[in-house]
């Protein structure tokens, strides 16, 4: 048995363990559905700001909003 196999076995055990007892119960999840807990509360606004950044910065990707096109200069 190699290390990779042991890691996978541990992950599998963990997944089964977690399945029997979620650490946040369904009745405790009200806040998680609230817009305040959302990573992107207003997609149209985030997409626009992302586009503003995309055309002025070299970095791209892994953003909350998705910019598009060019609109450079």
């Amino acid at each position: 048995m190699n290390a990779k196999f042991l890691v996978m076995l541990a992950l599998a055990a963990l997944s089964v363990g977690c399945s029997s007892q979620p650490w946040v119960m369904p009745y405790e999840r009200g806040w998680l559905a609230d817009p305040l807990m959302s990573l992107s509360r207003d997609p149209i606004s985030d997409n626009y700001l992302q586009h503003v950044h995309d055309v002025r910065e070299a970095a791209r990707g892994a953003s909350v909003g998705q910019g598009g096109g060019c609109g450079c200069n």
Binding site: M1, N2, K4, F5, V7, M8, L9, L11, A12, A13, L14, S15, V16, S19
Partner: peptide, 15 residues
């Protein structure tokens, strides 16, 4: 063994 590990992981997720 790697394939078996993936199978265990997949089964773990499936249940």
């Amino acid at each position: 063994t790697t394939r078996f590990g993936w199978l265990c992981l997949a089964l773990g997720c499936a249940v």
